[in-house]
Write a protein that binds this DNA or RNA. Structure first.
Length: 463
RNA sequence: UCCUCGGUAGCUCAAUCGGCAGAGCGGGUGGCUGUUAACCACUAGGUUGUAGGUUCGAGUCCUACCCGAGGAGCCA
């Protein structure tokens, strides 16, 4: 079953050799002169390979003329320079074997545009479309770019747990994990008896690997996680998933400024990598999805990000003449309309907003000397909004303990997290980046459900 | 979860004031051509999301529910 991938054929200019290509038929055009053009795609690249077949093939009339969109084939032929326009090379077939038929009466994909809504209902077939296969290739390239970025800088890749022991991560609703028989739940003193559960205590799917990443940062220096994350929020938007992938670097001996520097470098590296390595796929997005994506990415790579404090942001917003639905006031969180106004109207580029009021941020963020704000940073990008959220972590034992109490949390649940501040504490910082939101930004895809192979959202875990 | 809009042929959509269910693409058949979103002709294809109601008559109006999209909240 040795084969040549179509991407490989297009990447070299050699003609004359014999090749075996396997893939799926996208379309067939017949000539009554006794030959047909078949476009084959194998997923290795966006372009189809044009295969010329003629009635010298034994199975031309019985099989080749019945090939339709979706059939899988093995083609043995000679690579030749194309006589037609539209492609440089093509394959003159000597043999075509039909590996699998696809009855056109019932095969849902057609040689035409489908809506993304419809394609979501056929997630088992949608990667056979141009756009979804391009998303898959870009997603793959971005994963690669993430690892090379951190590995080149000496960051350690840490696998933090998917199942977490206690409900103490403090970031949104969690999915509970249990092996108890839900039709027959053990009860003790009127409550569920978790002693009988698998872990002898309530357990959940992780909402963040950050707290565990801090452990390794405070031993190994620079670390990062890259894995799935789960939120049981009933969010129905184009930028939320119940299961998504998050990148979380964590650095010891690093403050907020170093954190911002890394985040900006990180984003620029990913964008540059994709522009360099996914030219054909990015061309598709720039042509059919959002005609400004390439220009936007190029501009971001060459420009500085706008960095401003929350307080400055509030000032700009309250001085603007824009009419907002929600009032702008110091102390309350920025609404989507505020973020978008700053990002898209005022600066027209990504912004890094820092030093938020401590009341609207998490307990683990380092409190500033003003005792009102914390060393937090959000990176906001046009259209998507928040793509990165991070902070310098509170490294003072007493301050952290006090913050935990202030937020109404139980210090016992955080005993090990507190001990990191008791034994050899050090300044450290990190951030979380939503991988799918980054893919959305890079590709211009407007719905997050179309940049992950199998989206999980409220009411839907199909496939 | 809230607000708004939508659900009609395999797909994308149209259907005026409540009055015969339509088009393009896709499929089938035939024709034509080194074609490439191929082209030309013919043809098949419908429980209008579900349940109920108003009416002589409902795709259209009313009620409930289901599903989808956009926005908001929550966040990455």
């Amino acid at each position: 079953m040795k084969r040549t991938k179509i991407a490989e054929i297009f990447s070299s200019t050699k003609v004359g050799g014999k090749v075996t290509v396997m893939g799926w038929v996208r379309t067939r055009r017949d000539s009554k002169g006794g030959f047909s053009f078949i476009e084959v795609n194998d997923g290795s690249c966006l372009s189809n390979l044009q295969v010329i077949t003629d009635d010298k093939l034994a199975n031309y009339r019985e099989e080749v003329l019945r090939l339709q969109t979706g059939c899988s084939v093995r083609v043995l032929g000679t690579l030749t320079a194309s006589r037609g326009k539209g492609q440089k090379v093509e394959v003159q077939a000597q043999e075509i074997e039909v590996l699998g038929w696809a009855d056109p009466d019932i095969y849902p994909l057609q040689k035409k545009r489908h809506s993304f809504e419809f394609l979501r209902t056929i997630a088992h077939l949608r990667p056979r479309t141009n756009t979804l296969s391009a998303v898959a290739r870009v997603r793959n390239a971005m994963s690669q770019a993430i690892h090379t970025f951190f590995q080149e800088r000496g960051f350690l890749y840490v696998h933090t747990p998917i199942i977490t022991g206690s409900d103490c991560e403090g970031a949104g609703e969690m999915f509970q994990v249990t092996s108890l028989d839900l039709d027959n739940i053990p009860i003790k003193d009127g409550h569920v008896d978790f002693e009988k559960d698998f872990f002898s205590s309530p357990s959940h799917l992780t909402v963040s690997g950050q707290l565990e990443a801090e452990i390794y940062a405070l031993s190994m220096g620079d670390v990062y996680t890259f894995g799935p994350t789960f939120r049981a929020e009933n969010s129905n938007t184009s930028r939320h998933l119940a299961e998504f992938w998050m990148v979380e670097p964590e650095m010891a001996f690093c403050d907020l400024e170093g954190n911002i520097e890394l985040a900006v470098e990180f984003l620029k590296h990913i964008f540059a990598y994709v522009l360099e390595n996914c030219k054909e796929d990015m061309g598709l997005f720039n042509r059919f999805i959002d005609t400004s994506v390439i220009e936007t990415l190029e501009r971001i790579i060459s420009q500085d990000f706008e960095t401003l404090t929350y307080t400055d942001g509030i000032e700009i917003l309250s001085k603007s003449r824009e009419k907002f639905e929600f009032p702008v006031e110091w102390g309350s969180d920025l609404q989507s309309e505020h973020e978008r106004y700053l990002c898209e109207k005022v600066f027209n580029k990504p912004i890094v907003m820092t030093d938020y009021p401590k009341e609207i941020k998490s307990f683990y963020m380092k409190v500033n000397e003003d005792e009102k704000t914390v060393r937090a940073m959000d990176v906001l990008v046009p259209k998507i909004g928040e793509i990165i959220g991070g902070s310098q972590r509170e490294d003072d034992y007493n301050t952290l303990l006090q913050r935990i109490k202030e937020m109404g949390l139980n210090p016992d649940d955080y005993w090990w997290y507190l001990e990191l501040r008791k034994f050899g504490s050090a300044p450290h910082a990190g951030f979380g980046l939503g991988f799918e939101r980054l893919i959305q930004f890079v590709t211009g895809m407007s719905n997050i459900r179309d940049v992950i192979p199998f989206p999980r959202t409220p009411g839907n875990a199909s496939f």
